[in-house]
Design a protein around this nucleic acid. Structure first.
Length: 501
DNA sequence: AGGCTGTTTCC
DNA sequence: GAAACAGCC
């Protein structure tokens, strides 16, 4: 039999490694709660992970098998589990972040010295890091060129979905790992998975892992929810995606990010669905912009893979600037301003709406992510790492490569051919992308009774006007045009130029 | 995946 | 006087 190690691929369908394992013999699936990974987790992401694992576990149960749940260092858990199961091989799908690669190297060494075969598969992206390069053989650092090659390339079809016959049944799993029969999963109160044993289908509660219950709604988890969401999106909303995606109140985006982050849907399956939608649009009387709209959505999948390969080739950017400045950037890093940003109390309505959406829903619309990131780095002149850390804490869909790429882009330290243009005007952005202030009013209740015009002019109202309009909502904590000038000077100094010139 | 400023154009 | 545009950072 073969032991398949689930990591960021909480699904049975379109799972390349699992399909390969099941193709050769009976497979068993395991998830390992790794203390080194949990060190970087948060309440909302543990909640979201456990939700995804519960659905995965049920998918195994539907196939008369179950999900093995272990806790400990994978390099010690996996060899002993593989030995206990008498597994022929341990199989997994590659993960491209630096931490994951170090962990996987340690697991490879441990399995090799235990004499257990292992196999890693290309699954998480359509086009693996390293496979798309410039004609000179270098990795791409400019998205537009990367996209051209990405979209021209042939893609693999979805991997086969194993069925009951492909899995070791639940009884055999219990016998092999010595778990007591009928171990209950949901009503368990005795501390969850013990460190010294492997449970069969028995998932811990957040408290068992050292986390608190999430204070945000994390959204639905699992393959079926992902497919429902994608089908609904591709059947109608995607045709307006190009036109509407930047307007946060229109809910025009796919909301697939968390499903993709946890691998509850395979990227081949998702991409194939977009290709089918494209064919349908072309063969019906859809206008040209509807077809182009689908391609714009495909571009989002390409951005995900672009940043995955940036991180793969530059693992140090998790903590270091991608673009180095001669003199280094002297961030202002005012802790009270950063705290106001996190609370959603900056006095810039679109910024505060986004930060409050993040707190309530563990999600933020992507246009607003860019606005709040520009505000933190260019208006508060705070180091992007403060923002990245906060997103990592609060976003259910947090993905190291995507979030790091996005933050460094916003901070002018990332992969951007024109980094010095990226200072957003938070009022202009609010006016342009939330003209009716519908998004703002949804998340900033203090402003619900106000005219949109008044909301977009908040920064230039008098104290009296503000007190009359929305007494509970703060005045702007900084002056955008002053801070804009300061930001330009800060970057000039960082480049070693005289800010007076 | 922009914004600012000065200038021209259009009511 | 607003809106569109160009040039520039």
């Amino acid at each position: 039999m073969e032991l398949f190690w689930h990591r960021r691929d909480l699904r049975i369908a379109d799972n390349v490694g699992l399909a390969a394992a099941a193709d050769r013999g009976k497979a068993a699936g395991v998830f390992v709660f790794d203390p080194d990974v949990l060190d970087h987790a948060s309440d909302v992401r543990v909640r979201r992970l456990l939700d995804g694992l519960a659905v995965l576990r049920d998918a195994y149960r539907d196939r008369e098998s179950d999900l093995l749940v272990a806790r400990g260092d994978p390099e010690s858990v996996l060899p002993s589990l593989a030995d206990g199961l008498d597994a022929d091989r341990v199989v997994w799908n590659r993960d491209y972040t630096g931490l994951a690669r170090e962990r996987d190297a340690a697991v490879r060494r441990a399995l090799d010295s235990a004499g257990i075969a292992r196999e890693a598969h290309h699954d998480a992206v359509l086009h693996e890091p390293g496979s798309i390069r410039t004609n000179a053989g270098d990795p791409y650092s400019v998205y537009t060129y990367y996209w051209r090659k990405w979209t021209d390339r042939e893609t693999d079809p979805p991997a086969a979905t194993p069925d009951s016959a492909d899995f070791l049944d639940a009884e055999a799993l219990r016998a092999a790992v010595g778990a007591e029969d009928g171990a209950s999963t949901d009503a368990r109160t005795d501390g969850g998975v013990a460190a010294d044993r492997v449970a069969v289908g028995d998932l811990p509660a957040p408290g068992d892992l050292g986390f608190s219950e999430a204070d945000a709604e994390v959204g639905l988890a699992g393959t079926e929810a992902a497919r429902d969401r994608l089908d609904a999106f591709l059947s109608e909303a995607v045709f307006a995606y190009g036109k509407d995606r930047d307007y946060p109140s229109r809910e025009a985006t796919s909301r697939m990010s968390a499903f993709l982050k946890y691998g509850e849907i395979g990227v081949r399956e998702a991409y194939e669905a977009t290709e089918r939608a494209m064919e349908t649009a072309e063969s019906s009387d859809r206008p040209e912009e509807h077809v182009e709209s689908i391609e714009e959505f495909q571009q989002q999948l390409a951005w995900r893979e672009f940043y995955a390969q940036v991180l793969y080739h530059n693992p140090e950017v998790v903590t270091a600037n991608y673009k180095t400045y001669e003199e280094g950037i002297e961030w202002r890093d005012d802790s009270e301003e950063i705290a106001a940003w996190k609370r959603g109390e900056t006095g810039y309505p679109i910024v505060d709406a986004g930060m409050r959406q993040l707190r309530e829903e563990a999600f933020m619309h992507n246009r607003v992510r860019m606005i709040v990131a520009s505000f933190l780095t260019k208006d508060l002149l705070a180091d992007w790492r403060h923002g990245y850390e906060h997103f990592r804490e609060r976003l259910a869909d947090h993905d190291t490569a995507n979030d790091n790429g996005g933050w460094q882009w916003a901070a002018s330290t990332g992969t951007d051919a024109q980094p010095y243009f990226r200072i957003f005007n938070p009022m202009t952005q609010g006016e342009r992308y939330d003209p009716e202030a519908a998004y703002i009013k949804e998340y900033v209740p203090e402003m619900r009774g106000l005219d949109a015009d008044l909301i977009h002019e908040w920064h230039e109202l008098s104290t009296t006007q503000r007190a009359n309009a929305a007494p509970e909502y703060p005045a702007p904590i900084v002056d955008h045009s002053e801070r804009r000038e300061e930001a330009l000077e800060m970057y000039k100094r960082a480049r070693g130029e005289d800010p007076e010139e």
